[in-house]
Simulated scan of single mutants.
Amino acid sequence: MSRDFRPAPEHRRIVFLTGAGLSARTGLGQFRGPGGLWRLEPELEAAMHGSALPASLPLLWRVWGRMARIAAAHGPTPGHLAIARLGAPVITQNIDGLHQAAGSADVSELHGSALRAVCLDGCCDWSIPLSPGEGDRAEDHGAPAQCPVCGAPTRPDVVLFDEQLPGAAIDRSLRLAREAELFVVVGTSGAVLPAARLAPLAREAGARTVLIDIDPPPAAGLRGVFDEVIRADCHDVLPSWERARRGVADNPFLHPF
Rank of each mutant, 00 (worst) to 15 (best):
R62W: 00
A52N: 11
G36R: 06
R39L: 10
A46Y: 03
L57V: 08
G36I: 07
W61F: 09
S51I: 08
L40A: 15
A46D: 11
R62P: 05
S56K: 07
W61Y: 08
E45S: 04
L59Y: 00
W61A: 05
G36H: 04
P58W: 04
L59S: 02
A47N: 11
M67S: 12
S51G: 12
L37N: 04
L53M: 13
R32Q: 04
G35N: 12
R62S: 12
A55Y: 04
A55M: 08
E43Y: 12
L59K: 07
G65N: 02
A52F: 07
L37Q: 03
E41N: 15
L59N: 04
M48T: 13
G50T: 09
P34T: 02
P58L: 10
G65L: 00
G35A: 10
S56Y: 03
G33V: 02
W61P: 01
L44Y: 01
L60D: 02
R32K: 12
L60V: 04
A46T: 14
P42T: 05
M67I: 11
R66L: 12
W64V: 14
G33C: 08
G50H: 10
S51W: 06
P58F: 06
L53W: 02
R66G: 15
S51T: 14
L60A: 01
G36F: 05
W61E: 00
W64I: 13
R62Y: 02
L44A: 09
L57W: 09
L44F: 11
G36T: 08
A46N: 09
L57G: 05
L53F: 09
A47H: 06
G36K: 02
E45M: 08
P58D: 08
P54Q: 09
S56V: 02
L40E: 15
G50I: 06
L40V: 15
L59T: 00
P34G: 05
P42H: 07
A46L: 09
R32E: 01
G35D: 10
A46V: 13
G50E: 02
E41C: 15
L59C: 01
S51E: 11
H49W: 15
A55C: 11
G65K: 01
M48Q: 12
A52M: 09
L59H: 00
G36V: 01
W38I: 07
L53Y: 07
H49A: 15
G65E: 05
E45P: 01
E41F: 14
R66M: 10
R62F: 01
W64C: 14
W38K: 03
R32H: 03
G33L: 03
S56P: 07
V63E: 03
L57H: 06
G33H: 03
P54M: 10
V63N: 02
G33P: 06
G50C: 10
P42G: 10
P34K: 05
S51D: 12
L53Q: 12
L59V: 00
V63W: 00
P54I: 12
W38R: 07
M48E: 07
R32D: 02
S51F: 11
W64M: 14
G36P: 05
A47V: 09
H49P: 14
P34I: 02
A52H: 10
A55D: 15
L37P: 01
L44S: 03
M67K: 08
H49V: 13
M48I: 10
A46I: 09
H49L: 14
E41A: 15
A68S: 06
E43H: 14
R62H: 07
G65Y: 02
V63D: 01
E45F: 05
A52R: 14
L57K: 03
